[in-house]
Amino acid sequence: MNSSPQASPSGSDRGAASDIAEHARPTTAESIISLRGVRKTYFRGKEPIHVLQDLDLEVPVGGYEALMGPSGSGKSTLLNLIAGLDRPSAGSLLVAGADLGAMSDSQLARWRANTIGFIFQAYNLMPVLTAVENVELPLLLTKLSASERKRRAQTALRIVGLEDRMHHYPRQLSGGQEQRVAIARAIVNDPQVLVADEPTGDLDRQSADEILTLLERMNRELHKTIIMVTHDPAAAERAHITRRLNKGQLI
């Protein structure tokens, strides 16, 4: 596999890309993620809860950043905003050139499919699908042929070192292997940004180190920008930058 499993958008992706292009805004020259005065407020009944307050953040292209902070500090909320799963209550949020605050739900979904790769703490693989089918899942949204989808999924699995486990079901894999399948799923669409929410939270030390090494490779060799939420100082040490959040503010 070359460094890009899906180098150019195909089929419906092109339509989605033009759709999303309407919301394209210039980010700073080197930034792929740019937050200006971002606030996120939830309401518990009528009582407002300010989860993020006037947040400014610039992440350069190819950056690898860790977000740390106590529970309730707003790490996951910030990650969800960057991943396009949620919208800010105020402020501007540009990711990979798209103004996420101005996009509809379906535009955001298409944008996520093309731009973001997700890595979850609990791996979140489909138990009824084999490893290669799990990796293929995001490609169902493209117009690639079945054989091309399969080829790309196999390539992604080869990159994470699981070519010998392609036809295993998640229940037949160790936690570390499951997370590697999840990483293969995250990169199969060749997204620009990987968001990882506690990717080593459910793993033993050795497996965690293997996953962190793999993420480093994704960043170094495939030039993926990575934003990782973690409680693990050892994981944070692998990132280029560690940012700390407290009470919705970067400190």
Binding site: S106, R110, R112, F118, N124, M126, L137, P138
Partner: peptide
């Protein structure tokens, strides 16, 4: 529910 959440996250409508 969580699996549907994952599918929605990775771009399914």
């Amino acid at each position: 529910t969580r699996e549907f959440g994952v599918m929605r996250a990775i771009g399914f409508l």
